[in-house]
Amino acid sequence: MNIGLITPDPGHPLLAGTTALLAPEHRVTALHPQTATGDGADLADVYLLKARTPRALALARTLERRGARVLNSAAATELCQDRTAMADTARRAGLPFAATSGFDTLAQLVSGPPLPGPVVVKSRHSRRHDLVARIDSGAQLRALVPTWSQEPVVLQEFAPNSGWDHKLWVIGDRLFAALRRSELAPEGRGPSRPMDPARLPAGWAGLVHRVGEVFGLDVYGVDIIDTGDGVPLIVDINAFPGVRGQADAPRALADLALRTA
């Protein structure tokens, strides 16, 4: 089999581990989104889209138009980059996603009416080093203006919780789980603590797999907070996350690539 990796970083631990498992019997080729065009060359049996930049999405679309299978698809990946569209899609499907409203810029939000109690402000477009902040006062919101004034943002209700996020990842039919202190907690984000998915509250595993069905994802992450007595609230969905600290994740990804190919 020929497996293509759409990524600027084939040495990422998840991809490197997957490549090590596949390479003895299969060909693994990395395509850098900044330089690869997707035209002309023979198609791989499957491509793993571990990048979310506009150039990476354009490359994935070119390959898809030529008949290639891409995991995740360009359309599904792009949907998870827009938190407004993400929230609309999830709530229309009946998923317990945090109530979300969008603003063209942070400046527009600042100039509006006072915020009703604690809220969470996030960049509308999900990416590395984006804006994620709990806001308890107008002063805190205005303090973001010098850096983020023209940033498109979303506003989410803040739901009281334990201060720990449940980081849940799916690769094909495999579910992985960890606990991580929320970046909104006063203590700040801490390291992830792997947990047995069997210890999740009843119904959570099914909920996470339902997310994949709704969004058309094969490799994805779901951030859930427990709002009390095991009641889940989805606060983010990520296409092809790193799934760090999960020893079996590379094997699950290698198996998924081969089954798809």
Rank of each mutant, 00 (worst) to 15 (best):
V211M: 09
T29K: 07
S162Y: 06
L184D: 00
P191H: 14
G203C: 07
D88P: 02
A16H: 06
D236Q: 13
L155F: 03
P146A: 07
G138K: 06
Q140N: 06
T227V: 15
W169Y: 14
V243T: 09
P13C: 15
S162Q: 12
G40R: 13
Q246M: 11
A261R: 02
G212A: 11
Q156E: 12
S111E: 14
L253W: 03
W169A: 08
L115V: 01
P197M: 14
A41E: 07
L109Y: 06
D165V: 15
D45P: 13
L59K: 00
A76S: 15
R27P: 04
R134V: 09
L15R: 04
E25M: 11
R91Q: 10
H166L: 11
F103W: 11
D104I: 15
H129M: 13
A252D: 08
A60N: 01
E64P: 03
V154K: 04
A254Y: 02
G212V: 12
V235Q: 04
V214C: 07
G228H: 06
L31S: 05
A133F: 03
P113F: 14
P186L: 09
V121I: 14
P191N: 11
L63T: 02
A36M: 04
A252G: 12
D226S: 12
A85Q: 03
A85S: 09
H166V: 06
K167R: 15
H12C: 09
R181M: 09
R65E: 12
P197C: 14
R142S: 02
A98R: 00
P113L: 14
T260L: 08
R142K: 04
D136F: 07
L155Y: 10
P113S: 15
V235W: 01
P96C: 10
V110F: 10
I135R: 01
G4L: 02
V208K: 00
A107F: 08
P152R: 08
Q108R: 15
A23I: 14
L43I: 09
Y220C: 06
E187D: 04
L15N: 03
T29V: 12
A23E: 13
P118C: 13
I224F: 14
L57R: 00
V219Q: 04
R66H: 07
P194W: 05
L141C: 02
H32F: 11
V145L: 07
